[in-house]
Simulated scan of single mutants.
Amino acid sequence: MDFRTIVDVPRPDFAIGPQEKILCVGSCFADSIGRRFAEEKFRATVNPFGVMYNPASILHTVERTDCAPRVAFFTLGTNHVYILNETGEIVDNCRKRPQRLFTERELTVDECIGYLRQAVDTLAKRDPEVQVVITVSPIRYAKYGYHGSQLSKAVLLMAADWMARMYQRCTYFPAYEIVLDELRDYRFYAPDMLHPSQQAVDYIWERLSEAYFSEEAKRFLEEWRPIKEALGHRPFNPDSDEYKAFLQKTHERMAALKERYPCLEV
């Protein structure tokens, strides 16, 4: 008997190599995955202008940054946007200004697609080989009501699906489905019962790396893991001969790895 519904993660027609240049833009879920890319020594730029929840704000970040990644991750959180009444422009952050200065509205599927297309096209002008992975954040927005949050996610899912089907350089990674269908238990949520727990994020990372990483990237991560753990070790006695020998051995392993991966920095 199988007591779990496993979400299929199709293997894309490209692979992420070790120390690849990565751009992660989107909701706080993008922050979580982006930090993991950085920890694993990918050259990751993560939300350089802060967390961006909707497709319009994702476009704004892409336009403002000069990053030219080989792989970009767009994590869509909501289709709700806030428009500054004075200018009629969508703002990325209300900066705690009075609510009366803004009008909230919801983007349509076509509007979401339009902003995402512009963002992808902008990156493609910088690197014609760029690949864009689109995800929908599994985080629910309680302030919209849970039914309203689901409606918002539905719009984003439809836009993401269109992009993955119609844009050859775009793929869809089912982070949303993994949390809702594979990890259907509150033990996979943070104490607020809305955000995925670290264990859930680790599992999503595992599924992502299985499908998207090249064999070379997987080998690099296997070699990097013990070095990363050793560097994070906090000894009881840092002046002991044993720890100094341990540290020397770690630095030697690090130097050997750096010879094969010159971009490696610690």
Rank of each mutant, 00 (worst) to 15 (best):
L221W: 00
E111A: 02
Y141H: 15
K96P: 06
L247S: 09
T250A: 10
E89I: 01
G148L: 08
I83D: 13
F49G: 01
L123S: 10
V46G: 01
F220L: 13
I16S: 10
W224C: 04
P12R: 12
R11C: 02
L123A: 11
R100V: 05
P18N: 14
K218T: 00
R225G: 05
N47K: 07
W224N: 07
Y203P: 02
R35F: 05
S214V: 06
A119S: 14
L208P: 05
E259G: 11
R11Q: 13
I227A: 10
E206K: 08
P235W: 01
R219L: 08
R4V: 13
F3W: 13
E129S: 15
D31K: 04
R105D: 07
A245M: 04
E206A: 03
E86D: 14
F3Q: 13
V7T: 11
K125S: 05
Y167S: 07
F246W: 01
L247M: 14
M163V: 02
I227M: 06
D31G: 09
W224D: 08
P238L: 08
Y212L: 09
Q131P: 02
E40Q: 14
L23N: 11
E63Q: 14
K249A: 10
H80T: 03
D66W: 09
R260S: 08
R11A: 10
V201R: 02
P48S: 12
F74W: 05
H195R: 00
V155P: 11
E216W: 00
V7F: 10
F3T: 09
R100M: 03
Q199N: 08
I58P: 14
C24L: 12
L116R: 12
R117I: 07
N85M: 12
L101Q: 12
V62D: 11
I16N: 03
M158H: 13
E63P: 05
N85R: 15
N79V: 04
V81W: 02
E265A: 13
K41N: 14
Y261A: 08
K258H: 14
L231V: 05
C67M: 09
V133Q: 04
V81Y: 07
A44G: 10
Y176S: 05
A175I: 00
R126F: 06
A200V: 03
E206S: 05
F236C: 02
L116F: 07
E229I: 05
C170L: 09
F188N: 01
L101E: 15
L23T: 12
D92Y: 04
D161W: 03
T61M: 06
L247P: 00
P18F: 13
V91W: 08
I204A: 02
Y186S: 10
Y172R: 09
D239M: 06
V179N: 04
G114W: 02
L247H: 06
F37W: 09
G232I: 06
P235V: 01
F49K: 07
S240K: 01
T5G: 10
V133E: 03
T65Y: 03
R207W: 00
G145S: 05
F73M: 12
A217E: 15
E222I: 04
K41E: 14
A142V: 13
L59W: 11
